[in-house]
Simulated scan of single mutants.
Amino acid sequence: MTIDAMHWVWNQSTTTGNPRLVLLAIADKASSAECTVRMGTTELRARLNASKSVVVNAVDKALASGELLMVAPAVGSRAATYQLPYAVGYRRPTPGSTGPDSGPLSQSYRSGIETPNAHQGSGIRTGSENARGPESGPGGSGIETPRGPESGPLHQTTPTRSGSKQDGPPTTAAATVIPAFAHPLVGMINRAGYDTLRWNNLDSAEWLIIHALIKAHGTERLARFAIEQCQQRQITYGRYFISGWKDLAVVHDDTPEGVSRLPALRPVPSPAPSPAVARRNASRDYLDELSAQLRAGGSQ
């Protein structure tokens, strides 16, 4: 997976400079199919051979591009966990392949060989009727020489990319429209002055996560968190907020509206008397008892 992830960074990533080096450093260590890596600032500094401020700035730019995600933040001595989301499932083209790994060759790379029917011979045709090879004998064999694409020979000797380089992160047709339940959230963030954020790179699974987070925390709390993040750093894609929203503590409040719960009242125990007070009380009790005995004897 490491080679595939690095191939994706080299050929598909839109980042440049230090953010691209951060992606390459993480891809070099990615050994799982999920392309997740636990890596701290110290290790990134060693790989980039740069200062802490340069590394932190490069990581922030890579996160803002959407091509790097922070799956779990750093806690104590435990490093943060990063993911290359667009490298998940990516496979580099097989060496010597003549086209993309998935799907048929494009129309411009087809040889144009056609067999009209079984009664008319092979009927081999080229992409252009004007390009004909030499005939094999008198009358000709009728087999026309196939011609490769206009830009090169018929058979490629170098592997092609699995897809053209994109101008931005890939999107799906289902995720190009913001769902209705997210309109209030996106609207609050836009009204705060951050209406240039791009939300069209989220897939349906991520919108479902946001829907659950809205139910758990409320629209206003998620919007406030997103605005605070935008004030601290330059953010381009709305996907950046999902990991932070997941870390928000859930506030449980089962008290009915308008009712204030007070703690149950408990009796306060009386303080134990001091030794001197205890002696005085014992002496007083003895004198009272003696007086009662004398009164009882005098009355007889």
Rank of each mutant, 00 (worst) to 15 (best):
Pro146Val: 07
Pro159Met: 07
Ser106Tyr: 02
Tyr90Ser: 04
Pro73Leu: 07
Gly244Phe: 13
Ala226Met: 08
Ile3Cys: 01
Arg20Gln: 12
Leu262Arg: 00
Val56Asp: 10
Arg147Thr: 15
Cys35Gln: 05
Ala264Ser: 00
Glu43Gly: 06
Pro159Leu: 01
Ala174Arg: 14
Arg161Pro: 05
Ala87Gly: 05
Ser299Val: 02
Lys52Ile: 08
Glu228Pro: 01
Thr16Asp: 05
Leu24Thr: 13
Ala296Met: 09
Ser122Ile: 10
Asp203Gly: 12
Ala212Val: 00
Ser13Phe: 01
Thr41Ile: 15
Pro153Ala: 09
Pro169Gln: 03
Pro269Glu: 12
Ser102Asp: 12
Leu202Phe: 04
Glu150Gln: 10
Pro116Lys: 11
Ile3Val: 05
Pro179Lys: 13
Arg161Asp: 06
Ser53Trp: 08
Pro19Gly: 05
Thr172Tyr: 06
Arg92Phe: 02
Thr145Glu: 15
Ile26Asp: 06
Ala296Glu: 12
Ala223Val: 02
Leu208Asp: 15
Ser151Arg: 04
Ala79Ile: 03
Leu290Trp: 10
Thr2Ser: 15
Gly103Leu: 15
Thr236Leu: 13
Gly137Asp: 03
Gly187Arg: 15
Ala182Pro: 07
Ala192Leu: 03
Asp253Trp: 06
Val55Asn: 05
Ala30Ser: 13
Thr196Phe: 09
Arg125Met: 06
Lys52Asp: 14
Gly112His: 08
Arg45Gly: 05
Ser102His: 13
Arg295His: 12
Gln300Ser: 09
His217Trp: 04
Ala205Asn: 14
Asn130Arg: 04
Thr15Glu: 13
Ser53Ile: 09
Ser102Ile: 11
Arg198Tyr: 14
Ala46Ser: 13
Gly218Gln: 04
Gly103Ser: 13
Val268Arg: 14
Ala33Thr: 09
Gly244His: 14
Thr196Met: 09
Gly140Ser: 11
Gln231Ala: 14
Leu294Pro: 06
Pro159Trp: 03
Ala58Ser: 02
Glu114His: 06
Ala278Gln: 11
Ile189Arg: 00
Arg20Ile: 01
Arg224Ile: 06
Ile189Thr: 01
Ser151Gln: 07
Arg78Thr: 15
Glu34Pro: 05
Ala74Tyr: 00
Gly40Pro: 02
Ala87Tyr: 00
Gly238Cys: 11
His211Glu: 15
Pro275Met: 03
Met6Cys: 13
Asp4Thr: 00
Gln293Ser: 10
Lys61Arg: 14
Ala226Tyr: 04
Ala33Pro: 00
Gly40Asn: 04
Ala180His: 11
Tyr82His: 12
Ala27Cys: 08
Val56Ala: 10
Ile214Asp: 03
His183Phe: 10
Gly193Ile: 10
Ser274Ala: 12
Ala292Lys: 13
Gly133Ala: 05
Gly152Asp: 14
Ala264Leu: 01
Pro116Ser: 11
Leu208Ser: 14
Trp8Lys: 01
Tyr90Gln: 02
Ala62Val: 04
Met6Trp: 03
His183Leu: 13
Trp8Tyr: 03
Gln232Ile: 07
Leu63Gly: 05
Thr98His: 04
Tyr109Lys: 11
Asp28Ala: 14
Gly112Asn: 10
Arg233Pro: 09
Ala249Trp: 02
Gly187Lys: 15
Ile178Tyr: 06
Arg45Pro: 02
Arg224Asp: 15
Glu43Cys: 06
Gln229Ser: 15
Gly163His: 09
Leu84Pro: 00
Leu23Met: 11
Glu228Ile: 07
Gly121Gln: 03
Arg125Ile: 01
Ala226Asn: 05
Val250Lys: 09
Thr14Lys: 02
